[in-house]
Design a protein around this nucleic acid. Sequence first.
DNA 1: GCAAGGTC
Length: 672
Amino acid sequence: MWLIITEKYNTAKRIAHILFKNVKGKRESGISYFTSDDAVVVGLKGHVVQLDFPEKYNNWTKVPVTSLIRGEIVKKITEKKIVNLLKKLAKKADRVTIATDYDREGELIGVEALEIIRSVNPDVSVDRVRYSAITPRDIRKAFESPTSVDFALADAAEARQIIDLIWGATLTRFLSRASNRLGKNFLSVGRVQSPTLRLIVEREKEIENFKPEPYWEIFATFEKSDTGESFLAKHVTRFDDEIQAVQAYERISDEGIAIKVTEKVVQERPPSPFNTTEFLSAASQFMSPSRAMNVAENLYMNGLISYPRTDNTVYPPSLNLKEIVKQLSKGPFSKEAELVLSRDRIIPARGRTKSEDHPPIYPTGVADKSKLSNDEWKIYELVVRRFLATLAENAVWERRHVVVESNGERLEARGSIAVKLGWREIYTYWKVKETYVPPVVEGEVLKVKDKRLEKKMTSPPPRYSPGQLIRLMEKLGLGTKSTRHEILKKLLSRTYIYGNPIKPTKVAVAVVNSLSDFADVITKPDMTKMLEEEMDQIAEGKLTKEKVVEDSRKILEEIFKTTDVEKLSQSLKQELRQELDVGPCPECEKELVIRKSKKGRFIGCSGYPNCTFTLPLPKNGRIIVTGRKCKTHSLKMIRISSKGSSWSLGCPYCNYLKWIEMRDKEGKKEKE
DNA sequence: GCAAGGTC
């Protein structure tokens, strides 16, 4: 029997139907696979095993943290059903072909399956096929010339697994213990999450330390004497000095002369095809990236969109774009599809990243709105509109730039009008911003209808939106197309971050501060960069997995040797105490703090027992004390977070007073 | 109860 192993169910199905006739679907203990004559095709679920420390390391308080650095590591089965099926089929196999994804992680996933197969059938013959698209041509070609498994490449991926586990588990336990945050309140640390968190914390610090500086801008409205049309122009200089600004403002007389007019017709190319990052970034205006990914996964499973995890922004030549548009012209986006079909030639837009993994995300079926949930429809519509837009005509803009001089002061106006919407008629998520500036000839004398001097303040850099952060992570090499959204979800569920745009909690600031104090490497993208380089060298045979892991262990050991654990623990605890500080007590002005009692949690006065002021808190959800203060009570606003989402309770005192008022009203009603 | 990476 010939056993073929793929990375997931869908590719198993596709490959079986491409290679064989009379394919039968079978199902055993919840796992579906495919057979034909002597061949069996089984899809895994990505990794079916997971590295971990054995059970004897489970006690976070009793096991010394540093013993994890050289602790034993075992492979635990995470997909029991698949592993059982694999073992059962492997016994009958005389040939095994590994057909997992053609990348580093895919090689390891294949080796994991192979280890399971060999545990019951050690002498089975094994080969490996590599394909970069699941088209009949590519698949047949790959199966015509099988190669062998690349164990060095799999080793590279395993080195990453080991290093991530050792560093992550050791530092997570260390910080959690140092701060006495055990149980579900633990403080997590990792090669990807910590640098990402640091980005957020650093942006917040920039905002806090930002000193707004004044600057002045001068505007004038000019009027044409022939048509009476007017337009707004802005002084070409942004003034940092008030005196100079006032002088320039006063010099502007009651007329000006157009000294330079430039008119241009500008072509605006369509947006590039969606890869995961661009897709999540666009979808983040409707929902969180992890929700968007979830919905996309569903649509993919139902045959409505292509595989949503891809780095590629260039359509492969094997994709029949026109055919897909024709299909779409029969569905709810017929109008948009017709716009594309009416072109003489369809030339697709292309993005910067061309990779061979999967095509960009495109619609693979026609959806019925009534059969989809709201979110599903939103995502489907987004994918369809983006796809059609990438095949549509340019948008065309008429731009006009006018420079007017009045008594030696120069002002300018920029007008742009969309003369043809092109792809923008289809991709409606970006607003068409038009500004009208009337035609003006050089030398034309214009009347100054109005002039004004505005004082403005410089503003700090903005906080990150989830979409921006995912793009930034990609740029810095943090995480992968499949994990970036999950990293953000993780930071949310650990109450390290909240809100949109994203803000860090006090805990996050404390964690980043102490990590950068004693284990700076793990808070920087460089660790990933170095690891990538080392993995390449392992794959090339220039380094061994053992050597790379050993070097990494030594670095971590050195960190613990040179750290004053007691001192670090003190400063971390000190900083975390702020997290409980809610603001001044309205009765005695001492600090109000979050306290726990047997009945639950509440806000109490630190002056207790002299002051017995208290405020209630909701029973469920995690409490986040934000940086914003109530204007009436100076208490910090509170958010409640549960299952990745959060809502604002506002000022706890205002909230309490409102509740009292409500209760009294209800009471009156009942008496009547 | 730890990481990050696959996939559902």
